[in-house]
Design a protein around this nucleic acid. Sequence first.
DNA 1: CATTTAGTTCGCATATAACCGAACAAACTA
DNA 2: TAGTTTGTTCGGTTATATGCGAACTAAATG
Lengths: 160, 160
Amino acid sequence: MTNCTEKKRKLIERLGIHFEKEMDLSPLAARILGLLILSPSEDLSFEDITNITCASKSSISTNINLLLQLKIIDYFTKPGDRRRYFRASRNHLKLTLNDNLSKVDKQLEVLELIDEFNQGAEKESNHKFQVRLLYREFLKNQQKNLQNTLKKISEIQDTQ
Amino acid sequence: MTNCTEKKRKLIERLGIHFEKEMDLSPLAARILGLLILSPSEDLSFEDITNITCASKSSISTNINLLLQLKIIDYFTKPGDRRRYFRASRNHLKLTLNDNLSKVDKQLEVLELIDEFNQGAEKESNHKFQVRLLYREFLKNQQKNLQNTLKKISEIQDTQ
DNA sequence: CATTTAGTTCGCATATAACCGAACAAACTA
DNA sequence: TAGTTTGTTCGGTTATATGCGAACTAAATG
């Protein structure tokens, strides 16, 4: 059940630290996510998670509900079994990329606002202008890459 | 001196909220940055910043030093004037993109670790494997875009 | 030398985050 | 119906973030 080798434990810690920083999760939520990512073909119940992470029931409950709410994880049930079995959401990459895309869009919007403001009155250095131009180009490329990847993901999911 | 129209004030608030979220700055630090970005050709002293943001000297001091430390802002002095004049760092985009690049590198590393782990034991679904492949491709494109943009920035800066 | 200017530093207040254990609740089981 | 399983919710603790005012310092000015 609690199939958790030393190697896996260490990797969970490693991923936990990574996700904590990169996804802005609480330490425990990040570790739970790490655990679930490394256990794609196992069925992990609430109790399994409690045992492996060694955290209190209440903290696990809170953090699982947080991850569920953020759609970072999923759960399924088995017939005749009251427990929920958790897993990393199959949809999460898609959601992340969409999130990313909207961030890029927001940055482009802000850039637009700054441009507008500067066109009005300020005598701006050529250098600053060029850098903003470059930055816009960069953001547009990010957009393209994101849109493209999202399209490919949809294609895979449609095939399945 | 405190050349600050209503329009500019509103835009400062707008940028403040944006930077607070996107750059993980304190509200005041984010507003100071917004202010400096919208005042590229003005000389903004400590006092100007105090007046425009309506925050206490101590908070301004703390937050300016924070922004300086993060290399998000810069300052210069004028001969025979003790005051420092602050501005958005000319180098900041470069630093941001470098940061971004190292994040992408870290994500690729973590992906590598997960792949390695899964090759060992787990019977993984084809779908998950394909998604990870796609994600890796996405990250590599991000890398390329970042590296490319950084190169172009260097070129601009060399010309100047 | 006394005062002003230009900032820094300190202690305090308030808010929020992260975790815990204990009590509680709802559903199933003997 | 009594007990067990599967969680949730509540109150408290500790740590950290954000801001303030008041006291301080170091340099320039009169």
